[in-house]
Write a protein that binds this DNA or RNA. Sequence first.
DNA 1: CGCATCATGAAAGTGATTTTCACTAACATA
DNA 2: TATGTTAGTGAAAATCACTTTCATGATGCG
Lengths: 143, 143
Amino acid sequence: MKRVKKKIFHDYIAKQGLKSTRQRDIILEAFLSSDRHLSIEELYLKLRAKHPNIGYATVYRTLKLFAESGIAREMQFGDGQTRYEHVGEGEHHDHLVCTGCGAIIEFENETIETLQKEVAAAHGFLIQTHKLELYGLCARCRG
Amino acid sequence: MKRVKKKIFHDYIAKQGLKSTRQRDIILEAFLSSDRHLSIEELYLKLRAKHPNIGYATVYRTLKLFAESGIAREMQFGDGQTRYEHVGEGEHHDHLVCTGCGAIIEFENETIETLQKEVAAAHGFLIQTHKLELYGLCARCRG
DNA sequence: CGCATCATGAAAGTGATTTTCACTAACATA
DNA sequence: TATGTTAGTGAAAATCACTTTCATGATGCG
């Protein structure tokens, strides 16, 4: 899985005439081996431990590049920070966001997707993307 | 409708030991008589025409107060600005957001709401709120 | 290796709030 | 009605989370 995504990214870099750098490889490895839904800040802090000389701007720019290459997706969960989640090929999912501990749980529901398409059709609307988030307390936080 | 919301707000103000001020009344009237999904900036500009001495910070603080009192709700549609929409009692709706012209169309779908509850239940999750937005092109922008 | 390009890091800049602060206005209470 | 206490206001400064700039450093094709 990691290898596939690394290849996708390197192919993208090459195709765009960009360069392969030590920093990009380090950030890519850190991103792929970390939690889904990481913010720039979180990834930056995680990296600083082992690579104190990597700048915030580089992490920011590289994450954008990941999104462009298709291995990551930008997300907003209302906490004011942009988060990047891993993208598997073709898959789509929505989220349960715990307002207690901040946990983000993914789920898929085909029926909901179908109904969304019906709603859009009824309004003559052409869907490009959608976003469904359920905010509340996870099983642990309901305590 | 306006009268009901004004009462709700004034009751809230009183209950919290806050004060009723000229500015709050002006902002409340402007909010209630305007488009749904207004940004702070938009409301501020609209107000400046008739009341050039009302500050941005006051509009910002008052809108927050509206949200706390329950007559408005904060929303993010990915354009980097917080928007406030009117809240009717008990009602809930979701949005179609046109990426072409920025139009925001509301819709309701009971079946989707029900399915959301099922998903939450399956994860032991207690829903507080949710957010469903379909991004794409509206009938007009599809051309 | 040479060098045209792209990349990086530190720091400055942005845009949208959010907070601070000195000054007012509300609303009991005298 | 005059006061005192407390909340509210507006202008300006401060935050926050990016985003861009710029001088310097890598890359990698020829």
